[in-house]
């Protein structure tokens, strides 16, 4: 899910990565709207708001929204910077570091919200900033390692792709096209996971409030842990295979 890069990734890799990250993005976005009245996994709306606030002359809000957009941008920047600099040394570390940073951001928001949040505007603005940075990190990672085929924090481009795909499917030659079938699987898994994440967070938030961010951290932790587990298993398998062939040689 995390180790492979660009064209060496399988459909299954992209589906797993896309679904799990989309689930956490859906959670974060819904909770941020419920608590802070601001979207945090996409910035299209923020650009529209930026223009609206400029037109109204609310310069304080203009700079707040500009900072949020900038933090999402920086998240993507940092994520890809880590990948391109460390990918050749250790792809697992290079790909899991942005996710670890994302966990730290979400954990900080959850902890501060649960124990210290007094509902002032500046606290809200900073926490939304943290979440946008975290979502930028995630989006940068998934887009970068999947050769731009997986973007999980917003669904505008994805809905466009689905619309195009649906129109292609009106002709039989496209319905049997393996590349398009794979694309459909990835897109649908992301949409479903994002929606499920949102619904789940909306329901769970009523019970556990800010601790819902810990659940989002846990989901991202699963991605990192699963890959680590697979690395260990692969290593063990290689070791056993090596020992077995050595034993066979000795017996022969």
């Amino acid at each position: 899910m995390l180790r492979k890069f660009n064209n060496s990734r399988t459909v299954k890799d992209n589906m797993q990565l896309g679904a799990l990250t989309a689930f956490s993005a859906g959670m974060v976005n819904v909770v941020s709207v419920i608590i802070f009245f601001a979207f945090t996994s996409n910035v299209t709306g923020h650009y529209a708001i930026l223009a609206e606030e400029m037109a109204k002359g609310n310069w304080n809000q203009v700079f707040v929204v500009l900072t949020w957009i900038f933090l999402f941008f920086i998240g993507n920047f940092v994520s890809n910077l880590i990948i391109i600099n460390f990918n050749e040394k250790n792809s697992y570390i290079a790909h899991s570091t942005p996710l670890i940073l994302e966990i730290l951001c979400l954990f900080a928001v959850g902890t501060y919200g649960a124990f210290y949040y007094t509902e002032t505007l500046w606290e809200t603005e900073i926490m939304v900033g943290f979440m946008l940075f975290a979502m930028g990190l995630q989006n940068g990672l998934t887009a970068s390692i999947s050769n731009f085929s997986v973007k999980t924090t917003h669904l505008t481009g994805l809905t466009t792709d689905l619309g195009i795909l649906a129109s292609l499917y009106t002709q039989k030659k496209y319905r049997t096209n393996k590349v398009l079938i794979a694309k459909r699987k990835i897109l649908l898994s992301i949409v479903v996971a994002y929606l499920l994440g949102g619904v789940f967070a909306g329901m769970v938030y009523l019970k556990i409030q800010f601790f819902v961010f810990y659940v989002a951290c846990l989901v991202i932790g699963v991605i990192i842990g699963y890959e680590y587990y697979k690395l260990k298993i692969n290593k063990l398998m290689r070791y056993k295979r090596h020992n077995f062939s050595r034993m066979k040689r000795r017996v022969a």
């Binding site: 009245f37 601001a38 708001i49 304080n60 509902e119 809200t124």
Partner: peptide
Amino acid sequence: WTLKGRGHVLK
């Protein structure tokens, strides 16, 4: 009272 979002919601 408190303001939410970017200061656009009055709670």
